[in-house]
Amino acid sequence: MMSRTKKAARSVAVAFAAAAAFTMVVPGNAYAIDHIPCRGGEDYLKIWSHDGAGRSSVDCYANRGRTSFGGWWIDKISTGNNDLIYYDVNGDSVKIERWHEISFPNRPPKVGDIEIL
């Protein structure tokens, strides 16, 4: 007969093994979009933006996924080797194919999220 401690340990081990197997078998969305340092000559997504309070920024991103862009206005986008969807704060989404560079000199979109496909 097994002791209660051994039964409890066995139950925990079986539950852990089942959870590990379930995690490996069931596909999920493993989004790993990364905000990275911008370097010349790289083919990453590059976005020039401003916040309306006098601050501006140039940001680069790599890897597939979606992340918040904080409601900043986008002045220019260079997609590099990435297909992009940006989601503006009005609910619209705009897809931009890889290898495109777009400027918004007059009416820049205010963007809530960006997604690399």
Rank of each mutant, 00 (worst) to 15 (best):
residue 66 R to W: 04
residue 22 F to K: 03
residue 73 W to L: 13
residue 92 D to E: 12
residue 44 Y to E: 00
residue 73 W to Q: 12
residue 94 V to K: 06
residue 88 D to P: 08
residue 63 N to L: 10
residue 90 N to V: 09
residue 103 S to D: 14
residue 15 A to R: 06
residue 20 A to G: 10
residue 103 S to K: 04
residue 98 R to D: 09
residue 47 I to A: 07
residue 74 I to N: 10
residue 78 S to I: 09
residue 53 A to R: 03
residue 92 D to V: 07
residue 82 N to C: 07
residue 82 N to V: 08
residue 40 G to P: 05
residue 10 R to H: 03
residue 85 I to V: 11
residue 15 A to M: 11
residue 63 N to Y: 03
residue 84 L to M: 03
residue 72 W to L: 14
residue 49 S to H: 12
residue 69 F to R: 10
residue 85 I to G: 00
residue 56 S to F: 10
residue 27 P to G: 05
residue 55 R to A: 12
residue 18 A to G: 06
residue 34 D to M: 11
residue 81 N to A: 05
residue 93 S to L: 11
residue 83 D to Q: 01
residue 59 D to L: 04
residue 92 D to H: 14
residue 102 I to N: 05
residue 86 Y to F: 11
residue 62 A to Q: 13
residue 65 G to A: 04
residue 31 Y to G: 15
residue 23 T to K: 10
residue 40 G to A: 15
residue 56 S to G: 14
residue 70 G to T: 14
residue 61 Y to E: 00
residue 99 W to S: 09
residue 22 F to G: 02
residue 41 G to M: 02
residue 44 Y to V: 03
residue 59 D to T: 15
residue 98 R to K: 09
residue 55 R to Y: 10
residue 40 G to H: 08
residue 87 Y to A: 03
residue 78 S to V: 13
residue 11 S to F: 06
residue 46 K to N: 08
residue 75 D to Q: 08
residue 8 A to I: 13
residue 29 N to F: 12
residue 47 I to M: 09
residue 69 F to W: 14
residue 16 F to H: 12
residue 102 I to R: 15
residue 36 I to R: 00
residue 12 V to M: 08
residue 92 D to C: 11
residue 38 C to Y: 04
residue 98 R to C: 04
residue 52 G to L: 05
residue 38 C to T: 00
residue 64 R to P: 02
residue 102 I to E: 04
residue 43 D to S: 15
residue 61 Y to T: 02
residue 16 F to L: 12
residue 95 K to D: 00
residue 12 V to C: 00
residue 29 N to C: 06
residue 43 D to R: 01
residue 29 N to R: 15
residue 41 G to S: 05
residue 103 S to Q: 12
residue 73 W to V: 08
residue 27 P to R: 02
residue 72 W to P: 06
residue 13 A to Y: 06
residue 76 K to Y: 12
residue 61 Y to N: 02
residue 20 A to Y: 00
residue 34 D to W: 03
residue 35 H to C: 00
residue 56 S to I: 14
residue 101 E to P: 00
residue 44 Y to M: 00
residue 86 Y to A: 14
residue 43 D to H: 12
residue 67 T to N: 03
residue 40 G to W: 01
residue 49 S to E: 01
residue 99 W to T: 09
residue 66 R to D: 07
residue 32 A to F: 02
residue 16 F to K: 11
residue 63 N to D: 01
residue 52 G to K: 12
residue 42 E to W: 06
residue 25 V to D: 03
residue 38 C to H: 05
residue 54 G to M: 10
residue 29 N to E: 05
residue 20 A to C: 13
residue 19 A to P: 01
residue 105 P to T: 01
residue 11 S to P: 02
residue 47 I to E: 04
residue 32 A to E: 05
residue 46 K to C: 13
residue 48 W to P: 01
residue 82 N to I: 00
residue 36 I to P: 04
residue 101 E to T: 10
residue 23 T to P: 01
residue 35 H to G: 02
residue 32 A to K: 04
residue 9 A to V: 07
residue 97 E to R: 02
residue 41 G to Y: 08
